[in-house]
Computed example of a mutant assay.
Amino acid sequence: MIPPPATHHWRTPLPTSFRDLIERQDWAEPSKAVTVGPRHFISAVPDSERLVAEFLTDRGWQRPRDDRLTRPCGRLGVHLPRGPNPEWTVWGAQHRGAQVAWTLTVQPWLPTELLAATITEAEAVLEEAPPQEREPFVRGVLALGLIPLARAGWTDDVHPRGSVSFRPPGGFANAVVAVPSSLRELRGKPAATVSSYGPNSYWDAKFSAGTPSRVLAAFSRELADPEPLLRNADHIRQLSPTHKHITIRSLTDKDEESLSPAALAARSRSNAPTPASAPAPPTPPADPAPATPSPTASR
Rank of each mutant, 00 (worst) to 15 (best):
G171R: 02
G97H: 03
P241M: 12
W154F: 10
M1D: 14
S298V: 09
S31V: 10
A263H: 03
D287V: 09
L21E: 07
A217I: 02
A266Y: 11
A93N: 00
P293V: 07
A28S: 12
A6P: 08
S196N: 03
L114H: 04
D47E: 12
T105L: 08
F137H: 09
Q238R: 15
V106H: 05
A278F: 01
A233L: 13
L56N: 01
S31C: 07
F172T: 00
P4D: 10
P64M: 01
D253P: 00
T274H: 11
R71D: 10
H9S: 08
P84D: 13
A297L: 11
G162S: 06
S48W: 03
W10E: 06
T112K: 03
S258A: 15
T112A: 14
S258C: 07
R231D: 09
S48P: 06
P136Y: 08
P3W: 14
R237T: 14
P169F: 01
P30N: 07
V176L: 13
E54N: 13
K254R: 08
S31M: 09
S43N: 10
E121A: 10
Q94E: 01
P293R: 08
A218T: 04
D225W: 04
H79L: 15
R75Y: 03
R269Y: 10
A33W: 02
L69C: 05
P261E: 13
P38F: 02
R75H: 08
S201T: 05
L264N: 09
F166R: 01
A289Y: 02
N85W: 13
D67C: 00
S43T: 11
G74T: 09
W203E: 01
P30R: 10
A129Q: 02
R267Y: 08
P64D: 01
P81K: 04
F55C: 00
R134P: 06
T89E: 12
A116G: 04
F219T: 06
Q25C: 14
S17N: 05
S196K: 02
T112S: 15
P38Q: 05
N271L: 14
T155S: 15
D20P: 06
